[in-house]
Write a protein that binds this DNA or RNA. Structure first.
Lengths: 143, 143
DNA sequence: CCGTATTGCTATTGCCAATAGCATTTCTTA
DNA sequence: TAAGAAATGCTATTGGCAATAGCAATACGG
């Protein structure tokens, strides 16, 4: 059986990412959240009163698509909104949100460790630089 | 602005893959196909009379999800079906499919080259081994 | 021959992203 | 300061892709 795809870095990149994401979501499912939820929680935790729009810019999620994401976290009482001015509202973690984030962090930490363990030791230091090289270029285009 | 996400390999992996995929799809859009279409075309080209089910196993796409994909390519006359036995049908590239694949290959080749160019030269040889390390582990779980 | 597995399919659901458009508020600057 | 431009949050819709459950027809194996 010929498999010309597994020699294409682009293809393997997608598959590796999909596998990692699926694995992460399996871990997060226990907490009732998805990876996108957690990425927002992490961001809000690090930047209290972050605007929904600004969070979207960092996460590369468009304003329109932030709405259901934020609504969901509001409904779960994981975040709250606090008016900043007449149109913007700063996001904050509730105590429930902080507690859940702590649990999610444990899941993520474990996930990241597992990821590293998959890679032969001598290649491990190169993982992040390579991925950043691939990602950062697209960032300069987008923003 | 704190960005705790960009130090997480798992997160950066997803973003890098998403960026690469989006870029590839931009290139393929001119041809009226998507990356998933092309991955199937490549596979069928390398393995004529491949069964839809077997292609799904290689691409990690479930049988049910292969249906719309194959239907689309049939409708575009890029592939054809040839009965193998009472239930299976082998997939074949039509001449139109071969022609389009050749154009798509050019797009992909260019895409893969660009990908490599983003990475500092001394890291380039490590790209594929690292990605395979991440991907292959999930393959042994799945199959 | 009979139970089991396989193949292709329908139908539905969920997640995530993209687009277009809208009302409100803020900023800019002439 | 008034007027145009930009930002913010939102609605509504669409598309791509994956997951699940279930079905009919066919093939396989003891």
């Amino acid at each position: 059986m010929q498999d010309p795809l597994s020699s294409l870095p682009g293809y393997v990149l997608s598959r590796a990412a999909a596998a990692a994401l699926a694995e992460l979501n399996r871990g997060l499912a226990k907490l009732g959240v998805r990876h996108s939820d957690v990425s927002l929680l992490i961001l809000v935790n690090a930047n209290p009163r972050l605007t929904q729009s600004d969070a979207g810019k960092l996460l590369d999620i468009q304003r329109a698509n932030m709405v259901p994401l934020v609504s969901r976290l509001l409904e779960l009482s994981l975040i709250s909104k606090e008016p900043v001015d007449g149109r913007s509202q700063g996001l904050l973690l509730t105590s429930k949100g902080k507690k859940l984030l702590k649990e999610a962090q444990a899941v993520i930490d474990h996930h990241e460790v597992q990821l590293q363990l998959l890679i032969p030791e001598h290649l491990r230091p190169h993982l992040l630089p390579i991925l950043h090289a691939l990602w950062d270029s697209s960032r300069s285009k987008t923003s």
